[in-house]
């Protein structure tokens, strides 16, 4: 059973901006899934459609087999969502916020009261249960929103940039909490523009850019793809097939061009030694960049640039 199946989803906003250009996504049950992409890529729009906060233009969404158009209520019952923007009632107490949210999902107050204690304790907010949301710090508000998303015990938890604006220690403890929830059987999808976050938490990843999914694979495979570098070499003499280069992966592009892949950090000298040994004379060489790599460079830079860090 898949937790989420998105097919050919598009979204054009009222101002004509096409935020999603037809995305397909499948998240299996139990997965810890990252939707990674730079600001403006369309992550929040996609989440908004899945959680009924944004009207889609076309396409379909299924949550645990329930179609969002045809079995709206059943689909919605499966989902808990922590939005990117704080959407708490600032003058309500933590406890009331959670009890009310439980009520919207049909959880009676008696049952809700016990869950409120369970989740407020788990998220270290129990001491603040009778304080109004406005009095909480940024990180606490975020945690309160996580508790709120879990109060009806959904099977799919969606978090939109859950750790933006949260200091590093709390971020770590939130990661720990999300791992526990996932191990307890809840499928988790999170969006982030921090590569590190996706890398340390998630099993599978989709990378979205300008409204298109440009990569969708396991985290391990994506990391492997990123840890290699490809070079296009132009050869003096034509070759008919990809030459054997003592284990370096080679592809023939055309009879004068081959593409060689190296792990990052592997020495180029040894490659050229092999080439010389095989009497292959290289006229020119260029690095092959791909979109994924470019995007990742951007994401990594973004992460390292202090002004982009939202730490409290």
């Amino acid at each position: 059973m898949d937790a989420l199946v998105i097919k050919r989803l598009t979204k054009t906003y009222g101002n004509g901006l096409q935020a999603l250009k037809g995305i397909d996504l499948t998240v299996p049950e139990g997965d810890f899934f990252a939707l990674l992409g730079p600001n403006g890529a369309g992550k929040t729009t996609a989440i908004g459609i899945v959680t009924s906060l944004v009207n889609k233009t076309s396409g379909s969404v299924q949550v645990f087999g329930y179609d969002l158009d045809r079995q709206r209520e059943a689909a919605k019952l499966q989902i808990g969502v922590v939005p990117q923007e704080v959407n708490l009632h600032m003058f309500e107490t933590c406890r009331r916020i959670l009890i009310n949210q439980a009520g919207y999902y049909g959880v009676p107050r008696r049952v809700a009261a016990a869950r409120v204690e369970k989740y407020l304790r788990a998220l270290r907010l129990w001491d603040r249960r009778d304080d109004i949301a406005r009095s909480l710090s940024g990180g606490m508000k975020r945690r309160l929103m996580i508790a709120r998303a879990l109060i009806h015990e959904p099977r799919l938890l969606i978090l939109d940039e859950p750790t933006a604006g949260v200091d590093i220690e709390i971020r770590r403890s939130m990661w720990e909490f999300m791992r526990e929830i996932n191990e307890a059987g809840v499928t988790i999808i999170l969006t982030t523009h921090y590569l590190e976050e996706a890398e340390s938490l998630c099993r599978d990843i989709a990378i979205i850019d300008e409204g298109l999914i440009i990569e969708n694979d396991s985290m391990t495979n994506v990391i492997r793809k990123l840890q290699t570098e490809s070079f296009v070499l132009t050869l003096e003499k034509a070759v008919q097939s990809a030459p054997d280069l003592d284990g370096y992966p080679v592809e023939l592009r055309n009879e004068h061009e081959i593409e060689v892949t190296l792990s990052k950090g592997q020495s180029l000298n040894s490659l050229f030694d092999v080439l010389s040994k095989k009497s292959l004379h290289v006229v020119s060489m260029r690095t092959k960049t791909n979109r994924l790599e470019e995007l990742f460079m951007g994401l990594v830079e973004q992460k390292d640039r202090p002004s982009e860090l939202h730490y409290d």
């Binding site: 959680t51 009924s52 906060l53 709206r72 209520e73 059943a74 919605k76 019952l77 989902i79 969502v81 939005p83 923007e85 704080v86 959407n87 708490l88 009632h89 009310n100 949210q101 919207y104 999902y105 049909g106 709120r148």
Partner: peptide, 10 residues
């Protein structure tokens, strides 16, 4: 935005 609490619910 807390209207969203109801809008996401069933």
């Amino acid at each position: 935005l807390f209207l969203e609490e109801m809008l996401v619910s069933p």
